[in-house]
Write a protein that binds this DNA or RNA. Sequence first.
DNA 1: CGACTGCTTGAACGACCTCAATGAGCGTGG
DNA 2: CCACGCTCATTGAGGTCGTTCAAGCAGTCG
Lengths: 244, 244
Amino acid sequence: MIRAIRAFRDPGAAVRRLNTLVPLDEDATLALTDALATARPIKPRRELIGEGHEIVEPLLILSGWAARVRFLADGRRQFLSFLLPGDVVGLGHQTRPVATATVIALTPVEVCSAPPRDKSPALAEAYALSRALDEAYLLANITRLGRLNAQERIGDLFLELLERLRMAGLESGNSFALPLTQEMIADALGLTSVHVNRMIQLFRREGDLTWKTGRLTLTDPSALARKINRQPVRVSAIPFGTAR
Amino acid sequence: MIRAIRAFRDPGAAVRRLNTLVPLDEDATLALTDALATARPIKPRRELIGEGHEIVEPLLILSGWAARVRFLADGRRQFLSFLLPGDVVGLGHQTRPVATATVIALTPVEVCSAPPRDKSPALAEAYALSRALDEAYLLANITRLGRLNAQERIGDLFLELLERLRMAGLESGNSFALPLTQEMIADALGLTSVHVNRMIQLFRREGDLTWKTGRLTLTDPSALARKINRQPVRVSAIPFGTAR
DNA sequence: CGACTGCTTGAACGACCTCAATGAGCGTGG
DNA sequence: CCACGCTCATTGAGGTCGTTCAAGCAGTCG
């Protein structure tokens, strides 16, 4: 059933992620196909959603990276989370929801309207899981910022990205495309780009990773996870990809 | 309609908060009254929910303070958020949800089962708003930890607590009961208790606040908000307490 | 080739931490 | 009613992690 969508376009990664969360049924696939008709490209640095504005509709990220971000009056910037293919932005059940953060494209991004959750129970469940995951990663981020040192923060973020990209099939071996600058990483981790640079070089010297031309390779993710004591995120007692 | 519940017990603050989020209809009030029958006390330091365990049912905090918390292997501790009367824990739409953090009581706490959301549309909307607020405060916390300095973090947290307690009617003038130790504040803000102490004394010297015997008074909240450039949180285009 | 953006490196500084000791407040038991 | 023990607040001295400022270098794009 995924095939039908593939034929239409290549939303591969996004659909793959949703399908990993919950095996999608036919209704979900049809709804997704419809939604794909609304696909539109967003240029890097462009806003997808502005903080304080009313959310028109939830969006599904088809390709590219985006981020939720807050700007302080004096120019300081904080990335709240990174949004990857298959992530859904603007989920929420309240009436007339307002965006609590700006969402900007970090790379060329393709988004479409997220198919309405009432089209299929599988879709509703996928959204519920997606939102729960989103929240879990926010909690992880809080711990990271509050109690980890610079090196732990960076390692932890890289492991999180690997874990998330894996769900969308966007990782190969232990490497993935990382379209972030060191300054963006700094703004996500509460550090300066100078210090991020120094810590990454430390990782390199210690043989933990390779990073060049936009591709990051973790030498041994599980060893790294042990080194910085990281637990993978879990939000449901049912493992992903299990039939329900 | 609130009166009926008051007669039964004093869930005052919690009901007041929900009613502030959305004016509760009769069904919601009835459901709440039923839920109050399940009220139970929790001693300080006791776990309400354990990280990684399946969530049995969402809980409504009736009185007292609790917190979501993560412990690292080496003993470091991070408070993710504080839970106040009227807050609901464990909301989520996925099947068999798993707790992504431990929830512990900081003071004597009274909780009850949260009335099921399908009992009343008002209740469902209140939960949706509650969850959105919860998420918004997580985002605020991330910005706090990532980009504010020690003094800004503390001021920002105090303003947030005032803002939230106000919704439950638990503030008088610009003061409220603050049952936290400086060490807890430190563990929420990614600081040490020593440094929190020094910054609070700085606030005192600057005349921004008074804090003794468990009660915090902010001299001039809006001046403080301006000083550290804080914006109140908003998650819906509809102002709280508005009939829908 | 120039202009730009992002990475790299050095030196000095400072915000916050660590360690350690003292004091204040409070409940408990004798 | 006092002594004891406990938790929490306070204060000092010294150390460190991460920042700030500044400059040089490499890759990329028009």
